[in-house]
Design a binder for these strands. Structure first.
Lengths: 159, 159
DNA sequence: TAAGAATCCATTGACGCCCATGAAATCCCA
DNA sequence: TGGGATTTCATGGGCGTCAATGGATTCTTA
């Protein structure tokens, strides 16, 4: 099974375009493949971080899976649907492997607005990936490493 | 089951390439085999040492296993994912059994940057192997031996 | 028709792929 | 058992391709 792995930093140009790292594109194409040109990625503000969650078909199905457990027409389901689907944007990938990040998403991730040139960091998380402001991600990474230290015994323990 | 054993030291050339010791390559091919050319090794900064941890498919599955227990969309999972997947680089092995070490990884392992030529040491650790700066590893090895001596005395004393 | 958006084209620099060289270990056969 | 032949590896370098990026051109829509 293909996963989104490792991190890449690309340029966000004056038009708001940014190239999706080639390895991620490859995963997307195999995963949520939908015919040439018509393919797109699901992208929404991360609930608990100043970042964007992105993925392909598999991610969408996972969201569906969360809702599947709840009864139809229940209030709880409606609320969760809104939370999960409400802010999702489907971004189309152009012929050169780039997407355009809408203003609303950039605001949430703390990426430069307007015609400013900036950098964005793509972080692979297995079955999805996140888009970060590079500096913000660097500090988050430090925290993550410390957490990983705590889990270290788990890593070494099982053979 | 094949294991990575013993240590080898190879040259890191001006392009940042280094040959993977043939015995390790053999293990990788049997382990994480994925069709010709498409194969690669998973490599990330060691959490508690100035070295790089590397392995094949088996190592990747181990990481998956750690995450499998955590619920989707939990903050804890995201955090651990960052540490586990975010720092991982998938290095492809060329036709001659070489990989290129990206700048970020070389920095962590204290390997010469830029076009400088250097040596790197491959250390087998069973189901994974590490990449070290030769001098750093040598001093580390001394400590390990001393520790081993102490253990032996303790063990012998009881018997 | 103007502004914004989407598509197309061009440049450049990195990376993957291929071949050549040389050293060392292994094998083979007398 | 020794010496020559063969194969395996590590290493160096050249070249072609592809990805990232910037800019131009066309399409859409108000």
């Amino acid at each position: 099974m293909d996963r989104f792995v490792s991190t890449f930093t690309n340029k966000l140009d004056a038009k708001g375009r940014v190239s999706i790292p080639a390895p991620f594109r490859a995963v997307l194409e195999r995963d949520g493949y939908r015919g040439a040109g018509a393919s797109g990625i699901y992208c929404y503000p991360s609930i608990d971080a100043a970042a964007l969650d992105c993925g392909g078909e598999r991610l969408a199905q996972k969201i569906d899976g969360l809702l599947a457990g709840l009864p139809d027409y229940s209030e709880e389901r409606d609320e969760l649907s809104v939370a999960l689907y409400g802010d999702v944007q489907v971004l189309s990938i152009d012929g050169d492997g780039r997407i355009v990040l809408p203003e609303e998403l950039r605001a949430h991730a703390g990426l430069a607005t307007q015609g400013t040139i900036a950098q964005v960091t793509f972080v692979g998380l297995g079955d999805k990936f996140q888009i970060w402001n590079p500096e913000a991600f660097e500090s988050r990474r430090k925290i993550a490493r410390e957490k990983a230290m705590e889990h270290r015994k788990l890593l070494g323990g099982k053979g």
